[in-house]
């Protein structure tokens, strides 16, 4: 589904990301781990054509992301709160995204009902604008919004950060369900090795922009990763 060729990104002569080749097949749930500054967000930003690669390219379903915009209809993402529109209520935001993705109000409502548990009664009908929600609740909105319109590629940057323990478990359930769907490719980045190992079929570790580990998830994966990141 996603192919990376000779991808690199430099800022003022410093290479922050350098991936020679990486292929993520359709239906895989892909976990990206690494320390701060490892290049996780840079990689996702390149994948979403928010920044320009210095060399190389990324193909999303055979569409080169910085040459055509045709990847947008089937790709959904939530990187940070700049993906939220602060002056809307959560409902309005969901309907807005729904409109853009060709979903009517009933479709969106059906999806929201499905995830009522995840919202834990703190999101819908709460008389608050998104800008006034807590970080964790903003994140919940952003994550569920990526599910609108059955996208084939879902990109979540640090989805577990800022969430309470119960919500983290609920989110894991959601991601696992997505991962079970053979048509959906999920890309998740995280600092938390355990969470990532739990929900992903495959883990890739980045260190200072270089791909240092690439392995399918097995019983030993977590141990191996912890050993790698040990001080």
């Amino acid at each position: 589904m996603i192919q990376v060729n000779n991808l690199s990104k430099e800022y003022n002569g410093t290479t922050v990301l350098n991936i020679e080749s990486l292929e993520i097949p359709k239906g895989q749930s892909f976990g990206l781990v690494g320390n701060n500054g490892a290049g996780k967000t840079t990689f996702f930003s390149l994948l979403l054509d928010l920044i320009q690669p210095t060399t190389g390219s990324i193909l999303n379903n055979d569409i080169q992301v910085n040459a055509s915009e045709d990847w947008k209809p089937f790709t959904a993402s939530f990187l940070d709160e700049s993906f939220l529109i602060g002056y809307l209520t959560p409902e309005e935001y969901f309907y807005f995204i729904g409109d853009l993705r060709g979903q009517n109000k009933a479709d969106v409502d059906a999806l929201l009902v499905q995830h009522e548990e995840f919202f834990n009664g703190e999101i819908l009908k709460n008389k608050k604008y998104l800008r006034d929600l807590s970080k964790g609740n903003q994140k919940k909105v952003g994550i569920i919004a990526t599910l609108i319109g059955n996208p084939e590629v879902i990109i979540l940057d640090e989805p577990f950060a800022n969430l309470d323990p119960t919500t983290v478990n609920r989110l894991k359930k959601i991601i696992k369900e997505l991962a079970d769907n053979p048509n959906v490719t999920v890309l998740v980045s995280s600092h938390d090795l355990q969470h990532t190992v739990e929900v992903c079929d495959r883990i890739v570790a980045l260190n200072k922009g270089e791909l240092v580990k690439d392995m399918p998830t097995t019983k030993e994966t977590l141990q191996e990763l912890e050993l790698f990141f040990a001080v």
Partner: peptide, 12 residues
């Protein structure tokens, strides 16, 4: 501007 990244990744 505050949600420009969203606009750029949606099918807008």
């Amino acid at each position: 501007s505050s949600y420009y990244q969203l606009m750029m990744t949606q099918n807008v």
